[in-house]
Amino acid sequence: MMSRYKELVKDFNNDFSTKEISSAYLGAFFYTTIIALPLLIAIAQIVSVYLYWLTFWVILIIIVMFLLNYLFHRLTRKALILKRPDTEVDIWRLFIFQQIFINIFFVIIGLIFIFILIPIWMV
C-alpha cells in the first residue's frame, strides 16, 4: 500500500509544478475555511447549550472534520483538474491515502479529548 502511495506521489509531483500544487491547496484551504468557520462555531454553540451530550458532540465533531477533510481534498482535486484537464495522474486515489492519514489523526485527537482532556476540564 505504501509503495503504491509513493508511486502516486512521484507521478503527482512530476505532473504538476510546485506553483500549481500550492495554488490548488491554497484555494481549497480558503474555501474549506469559509465553510468550516460558521460550521464549527455553530457546533461549539450547540455543545455549550447541550453540554450533557458532550461525548456525542465530540464524535460528531470528528465526523464533521472527516467531511471537511473530504471537502478540502475534493476542492484541491477540482482546482488541479481545472488547471490541467488532461492530467493522467489518479489524483483522487492519492488523496484517499492522504485523507485516511489525516482522519486517523482526527480520531486520535478526538479520543484524547474524550478520555483525557474533557475529564480534566470538567472539574
Binding site: 495554488s23 491554497l26 484555494g27 481549497a28 480558503f30 474555501y31 476542492l75 477540482k78 482546482a79 481545472l82 488547471k83
Partner: peptide, 9 residues
Amino acid sequence: MKELTKHYL
C-alpha cells in the same frame, strides 16, 4: 484559487 473562484462564482 482563481480557477475555483471562477468555477464556483
